[in-house]
């Protein structure tokens, strides 16, 4: 069977045409409307009058320069784009054909990508589209994709929450609730690259090994937790206290470079830690030694140099007897 037999003519009454092409427009040879498909009539509303001129109904967007249906057909009848002149925000896409004999023109139109707008503004239903039209599938797909995107956005938010929680955990020392070495390194990096002024305290507990050996690890843990609480009490939110080893701590005091202030903070911490701590009826006695360095002590403060300087100050403090705070001599570096 051949689909293109030239002698094969079909005749169709307007009812059948409306059924197959609910968005057709039939124009006479002068370009005046003879009939409208029912859906196109809804699109054009009051403008869908018998005898209306094609160019009164539509503005031609492409092919450019065409105004009348004759010009449209002459320049690109196989595919054109129109905008209804009645203010509807949806463009139309179509093709046209001059019928033999009468010279009438049959134009068939569809909503392209503006389908959703048209359906919303005209409250179109399933019945307004031919059964072969993919409009339903397009509307369905737009909604399905929106639903999937919404789910993915939800998933992203939940994963982001989990990531923040995991990151928080990765920066915290679980025993004392203080920050850990990684967190202290991050803060030091940030402050150094911002050229901020700050004090760095390197603290080591005295007699901690004795508590562990004589009273057991539970007592040792209790001491570390208590030290954590003391440091949190003594420092401000913008400061950073980290446990960086067994009984070794790093304290970063933000925006403080005055030697007396830093010395006073260190001595206050030592005084609090030196108070006897009671664990299950036994008394734990520890103290602390602190080495202090200021970011301003170094010409070009970098974390490794600062930590090494604080370590030297701590060594000097231990050497001078326990329970002391020693500030690095300004000429030290």
């Amino acid at each position: 069977m051949r689909a293109d037999r030239p002698d094969q003519r079909i005749e169709m009454d307007s009812g059948a045409l409306a059924h197959f092409m609910p968005m057709h427009l039939l124009l006479d040879s002068e370009g005046r409307a003879l009939s409208y498909g029912p859906t196109l009539a809804r699109v054009l509303q009051d403008a869908a009058r018998s005898g209306a001129l094609f160019e009164e109904l539509y503005e031609v967007r492409s092919p450019g320069g065409a105004v009348t249906i004759d010009e449209v057909l002459a320049r690109g009848g196989h595919r054109f784009r129109l905008m209804p002149r009645n203010g509807l925000r949806a463009g139309l896409r179509g093709l046209g054909l001059r019928l033999p004999g009468s010279g009438a023109v049959l134009v068939n139109l569809s909503f392209g990508i503006d389908l959703t707008t048209a359906v919303r503004e005209l409250a179109l239903t399933d019945a307004d589209f031919a059964a072969t039209d993919l409009a339903m599938e397009l509307l369905y797909m737009a909604e399905a994709n929106a639903a999937v995107t919404r789910e993915l956005r939800g998933l992203n938010l939940r994963l982001e929450g989990a990531r923040i929680a995991a990151e928080e955990e990765a920066l915290t020392d679980p025993l004392t609730g203080l920050r850990n070495r990684r967190a202290a390194d991050l803060v030091l990096d940030r402050l150094c690259s911002a050229r901020a002024g700050f004090g760095l305290l390197h603290m080591d507990l005295d007699y901690f090994k004795a508590v562990n050996d004589e009273l057991g690890h539970a007592a040792g843990d209790f001491v570390l937790e208590t030290v954590g609480r003391i440091l949190r009490d003594q420092l401000r939110a913008e400061d950073c206290a980290a446990r960086v080893g067994g009984d070794e701590f790093v304290i970063i005091v933000a925006n403080r470079t005055d030697p007396r202030t830093l010395q006073a903070i260190a001595e206050r911490i030592i005084a609090r830690i030196s108070q006897p701590m009671e664990f299950e009826g036994r008394i734990c006695r520890v103290s602390a030694s602190i080495g202090i360095v200021r970011s301003t002590d170094l010409a070009l403060p970098e974390p490794p140099q600062l930590l090494a300087a604080a370590d030297r100050a701590l060594y000097a403090a231990k050497h001078a007897g326990r329970g002391r705070a020693v500030l690095l001599a300004p000429t030290g570096e």
């Binding site: 239903t125 399933d126 019945a127 909604e143 399905a144 929106a146 639903a147 919404r150």
Partner: peptide, 12 residues
């Protein structure tokens, strides 16, 4: 409501 709507696209 999204699931109900997607199913309703199945027909009138």
């Amino acid at each position: 409501e999204g699931i109900r709507r997607l199913l309703r696209f199945g027909g009138v």
